[in-house]
Design a protein around this nucleic acid. Structure first.
Lengths: 145, 145
DNA sequence: CAATAAATATAGCCTTGGCATCATTCATTG
DNA sequence: CAATGAATGATGCCAAGGCTATATTTATTG
């Protein structure tokens, strides 16, 4: 028999799907923090550790550690006892994330998901929404309106 | 001023959204393994560590550790050098996960996402799809067909 | 039925993202 | 301008989920 691999038409899960999902998940936390910092700066003029932690629902040490990672990745900057700032790259990421989040929430609401639930689900789903899927969401919203 | 909290109408992210997403994420790995074990048993008659690891795109020790957790959580059972089995609870979970996965993929395809992308995105998204959102997906599919 | 190959198990290490606790610095305000 | 309370920082702990490397067991086959 020439073929031992599962037929392409079958659903016998390729490992790439899982590693891809794992990679997306690894970005998720950073995306959330970056967006939160951006929100806080817009709302309050500054992003303080205490506020970040409170809104993320974690303790300060956890927030501090996350921000340390953002700094390592070149997305944020901060000096002791001062607030946190986003770098150019951080701001750009925040904008993309914010826009995507909005589309996902709007889309869910548009297909009949209650507002609160849409917010809940979007928070986790958004990190796994590819550009292609995002375009499909947008297309649906355009058509519907 | 009587109110210091952000108005309910605003989007000032409640911490619950994030902790909820984190909780969902904590379940995600177990859901994936349980579904994979179920798939392998259906396809090959047994679920061996090597196959699980290969399909999940991880090394065997990683798969072994994940299965140890499933056992601790009462979702799977296994004896040394024998395959892995699902408990009653494990099988039920696998069925729910499989059904949800199918709906998410079908839904994405229905709104115009390419098959391959739908599979990719669904793999990450599905774990954050609530019952309410799942119902909305199903409703859309019914209407569309 | 012994030798070898393939699976499985075990151990140890790393990173991430949680936590609690304690020390330090900042900022009010008495 | 000192004292106190609130933020921040530092340290150390834990579990999960990756990995490599090294036993050990099982299965196959010469």
């Amino acid at each position: 028999m020439p073929s031992n691999e599962p037929k392409t038409s079958e659903d016998a899960q390729l490992p790439e799907r899982f590693s891809h999902a794992r990679a997306a998940q690894a970005m998720a936390v950073m995306e959330d923090y970056v967006e939160m910092i951006s929100d806080l700066m817009a709302e309050l003029g500054e992003a303080r550790i205490a506020d970040i932690a409170q809104r993320m629902g974690v303790t300060h040490p956890t927030a501090t550690k996350a921000i340390a990672r953002l700094k390592r990745e070149g997305l944020a900057s901060s000096r002791p006892y001062r607030g946190v700032f986003l770098t150019e790259r951080g701001s750009e990421l925040a904008e993309r994330v914010r826009a995507r989040h909005r589309v996902v929430v709007d889309f869910l609401v548009a297909i009949g998901v209650p507002d609160e639930t849409a917010e809940m689900d979007a928070e986790g789903m958004e990190h796994h929404v590819s550009d292609a899927t995002l375009r499909a969401f947008k297309a649906y919203l355009r058509k519907k309106r």
